[in-house]
Design a protein around this nucleic acid. Structure first.
Lengths: 141, 141
DNA sequence: GTAACTGCAAAGAGTTTGCACGCCC
DNA sequence: GGGCGTGCAAACTCTTTGCAGTTAC
């Protein structure tokens, strides 16, 4: 409560009910990746009367303020997660939809190398691995 | 002409005018990355009377047939390119919008390693670097 | 008190689909 | 000749926006 208030103040956003509740949803869900609609449904489940348009507006503001990060994975809907400061990439289990975060400093370095080789510097990047659990029983691998 | 006819036959699609023309556009544009609308505009420029809906339908069929690959880069519109068989990743010059292809077997290997470390095998992946030309003049780098 | 914020409904972008007609084999 | 393919317009999904009323500071 106090923590969310401070965070909103810190980034210069008025402390309003919708913004507080949305921020709390992400704090509860630490490590989770939510679409705007996921957030909206969780608000409904908490008996909150906050419109979907407001959720989109707040998420956009949070992104601009660096509170959340937005990802455009496959499948149309954008997903948001709290920005905890440390960069990471994502692996998506295509069977369960589960999102796993990972960091590989070596991959990051190679990316910079490749870009440099072409005369560029990296501004941003997106790496997503679509994965399936390694089959142990089937002797395939 | 003959080449496109054969390709359509090979994948089991009827040889129709719209499919021929769309395939030719990609053949002309070897190495290019086009949105459905880009294709549509090029058809218009060639005085072709082919609907945007048909372009979408044909591109979807081509993707299913392995003739083209679809990418969901940032910015809403999907882009398609001829599938020339060899996998590669993409670098996008954020200033010019130019798309550069690259291959890094070492990055591929590291990706497989990371996935394996988490108990997964990679089904597919998406790596896009958003880059800016290395500034030589400004002594910044 | 007033500018920022909100909910609603309508608009917008990109893509898909239903239907009647037309073309390929 | 029959079914697949096409054009058009309407539908659909996700997201943004205009407006009038409300709220934080």
């Amino acid at each position: 409560m106090e923590q969310e208030t401070q965070e909103l103040r810190r980034v210069g956003l008025k402390v309003t009910h919708p913004r507080m509740r949305i921020l709390q949803i992400f704090d509860e869900e630490e490590g989770n990746h939510l679409t705007a609609e996921d957030v909206y449904k969780k608000l409904l489940a908490h008996q909150e009367d906050i419109g979907l348009a407001t959720v989109y507006r707040v998420l956009t503001q949070f992104e601009a303020a660096g509170i959340v990060v937005k990802h455009n994975f496959e499948g149309g809907q954008a997903v948001y997660e709290l920005d905890r400061g440390k960069h990471h990439d994502h692996m998506i289990d295509v069977d369960s939809g589960k999102v796993i975060e990972f960091v590989s400093e070596e991959i990051e370095r190679l990316q910079r190398e490749v870009a440099a080789r072409h005369g560029y510097v990296i501004e941003d990047h997106s790496l997503v691995l679509y994965v399936r659990p390694k089959s142990r029983g089937t002797r395939k691998g």
